[in-house]
C-alpha cells in the first residue's frame, strides 16, 4: 500500500545506484513521517552519503522512485529547495564574511518562500541564540573555532526554516567535547523546531543518542530499521550464556538463549549454578555486522569513491 498523505516526508522505493560496474545501493526502500530524528547508520562505504546526496537532489540515481516532501529531488524546483535544509561541512568558504552578515544574506533568498504556517527566513538574532553564536555574531568566519564553525554550518542549514534537514556525517573528525556539544544542539533542534532531521553516521552511539529511529544500511541494503530498543531485540544477535557445573565454568553463544537454558536445566537440573545470560547488545551486533562487511566493502568502497571524484 502506498501512503500519499502529507505527513510522509521521505518516500523511497527500490532506489538503486550504480557507479560503472559497482552497485552502491541495491533497491533501498524507506518511508518516513514528519517529525523526529532519523539516523541512517552504517559503516564507511555502505552507501549512506550516496543515498543522502540523492535525497538532497545533488546526485542522480540510477533507478527507483524517490519523493522528498512529495517531490522528486532530481526535478526539485527552487520552491522545493526552500523547504529543504542541508548542513554542509564548511572548510574555508566565506572566511572574510562576518557571522551575522552571512546568515542575513543567505536568509534573504528564503524571504519569498514564506507560507502561512512557516515564516521564512529565521530571524537572525533568534537563530544566533538557538545555535549559541550570539556573542560571535560580529566575528569574521575565518576566526571561528572548529566547533563554532559547525554551529554556523547548522545555522546556515536551518536559516530557511526547512521542513526536512539533512546532516551528512555531522561529527566526523570531532573531539569528544565538540561531539557532545553538537549532540546537544541537534537534540534541541529536533525538540523545538519540529523539523524532520535525517542524519547519517557510522557511529552507533551517536545514532542511539539522537535518533528515535535508526535505519542500518550495509553494502547498499537496509538490513534493520527501528528504534534502538527494537533493533536490539529484532536483530538476531548472539546472546552469551555462562554457567558452572561440577565446579567448571562453561560459556556458550546462542541466538536461542531461552530454549538453550531450558534444555540445560532439563538435562542437568540442580547441577547448574552461577547462570548468567547476556543479551546481545546492539553495539556488539552492529560491530560484528560491520566486521563481516569490511572485507567485502574494501573493494567496493574504493570503486565508489573513484566514481565520486570523477
Amino acid at each position: 500500500m502506498r501512503t500519499t498523505d502529507e505527513d510522509v516526508v521521505l518516500d523511497v522505493d527500490d532506489l538503486r545506484m550504480r557507479y560503472g560496474k559497482t552497485d552502491v545501493l541495491h533497491g533501498v526502500t524507506l518511508r518516513a513521517r514528519r517529525g523526529g530524528v532519523l539516523a541512517l547508520l552504517g559503516p564507511n562505504g555502505a552507501g549512506k552519503s550516496t543515498m543522502i546526496e540523492i535525497l538532497e537532489g545533488f546526485r542522480m540515481r540510477s533507478a527507483g522512485r524517490v519523493r522528498v516532501l512529495g517531490v522528486d529531488p532530481a526535478r526539485g524546483d527552487e520552491r522545493w529547495r526552500a523547504r529543504v535544509g542541508i548542513v554542509l561541512q564548511s572548510w574555508r568558504d566565506h572566511g572574510n564574511w562576518r557571522v551575522r552578515e552571512l546568515l542575513g544574506h543567505l536568509g534573504s533568498y528564503y524571504a519569498y518562500y514564506s507560507t502561512d504556517e512557516i515564516q521564512r527566513p529565521w530571524d537572525v538574532d533568534e537563530l544566533l541564540a538557538v545555535v549559541g553564536l550570539t556573542e560571535h555574531a560580529k566575528k569574521r568566519i575565518k576566526t571561528l573555532s572548529g566547533g563554532q564553525r559547525r554551529r554556523l554550518d547548522v545555522a546556515i542549514g536551518i536559516v530557511g526554516r526547512p521542513e526536512l534537514l539533512f546532516l551528512d556525517e555531522p561529527t566526523a573528525g570531532f573531539d569528544p567535547r565538540a561531539r557532545h556539544e553538537f549532540h546537544e544542539l541537534v537534540r534541541g533542534l529536533a525538540d523545538t523546531l519540529g523539523t524532520t532531521i535525517l542524519l547519517t553516521t557510522h557511529d552507533l552511539d551517536e545514532a542511539q543518542k539522537l535518533a528515535a529511529r535508526i535505519v542500518i544500511l550495509s553494502s547498499g541494503r537496509i538490513i534493520a530499521d527501528g528504534s534502538a530498543d527494537e533493533l536490539a531485540r529484532r536483530i538476531a544477535g548472539q546472546d552469551d550464556v555462562r554457567w558452572t557445573r561440577d565446579g567448571q565454568r562453561y560459556a556458550r553463544s546462542t541466538t536461542e538463549s531461552t530454549t538453550f537454558v531450558r534444555d540445560l536445566f532439563h538435562r542437568h537440573g540442580e547441577e547448574i549454578s552461577e547462570l548468567e545470560v547476556h543479551r546481545a547488545s546492539l553495539e556488539k551486533t552492529y560491530l560484528s555486522l560491520v566486521r563481516q562487511d569490511e572485507s567485502a566493502q574494501e573493494l567496493t568502497a574504493t570503486h565508489a569513491s573513484e566514481g565520486v571524484v570523477r
Binding site: 527552487e78 520552491r79 529547495r81 526552500a82 542541508i86 554542509l88
Partner: peptide
C-alpha cells in the same frame, strides 16, 4: 564549497 552552499539555497 562556496558554490555548493549557493546550490543548496533557493
Amino acid at each position: 564549497g562556496t558554490l555548493l552552499r549557493a546550490k543548496a539555497i533557493p
